[in-house]
């Protein structure tokens, strides 16, 4: 049960929010021709990395505003939340040891119990 820091309401329980999937995915605006494949990737394909991830959330049971965050998907730690009009933070500012799909974070994944 995470605590998510809504940029407008402050830190609230996860139960008040809905997840909105990958952030910073630009919608092709129909101003130019776009092939089936490229459009299909926009509609259906989203990244799913293990590790740091830009993500959208909406405060459904609160102010109903959308915002972005950086979450470490290997530990579920939300490292920062930021408003839609703020610049997206550089991922290198955050410590995450997960480098490969099969890598595990040093601590906090819940998949192992003993210190390596």
């Amino acid at each position: 049960m995470l605590i998510i820091n809504c940029p407008y309401c402050g830190p609230r329980d996860q139960s008040e929010f809905s997840n909105g999937g990958e952030a910073h995915v630009k919608r092709p605006d129909g101003s130019k021709e776009i092939g089936d494949r490229e459009w299909g990737e926009y509609v259906f394909i989203r990244a799913n990395p293990k590790g740091l991830f830009y993500e959208r959330w909406v405060h459904t049971h609160g102010c109903r505003k959308w915002f972005n965050c950086v979450r470490d998907t290997s530990t579920d730690e939300i490292l920062v939340t930021y408003k839609l009009d703020e610049k997206k933070p550089n991922l290198n500012n955050f410590k995450s040891v997960v480098k490969t799909p099969s890598g595990e974070p040093e601590v906090g994944s819940g998949n192992f119990t003993v210190e390596k």
Partner: peptide, 23 residues
Amino acid sequence: FTQSKGLLDWDEKDLTYKPSKPF
């Protein structure tokens, strides 16, 4: 402690797992 995703370490003298790194 382990439910909190903290890590354990084996103590060879006291022969048990003790809490080590908290998450």
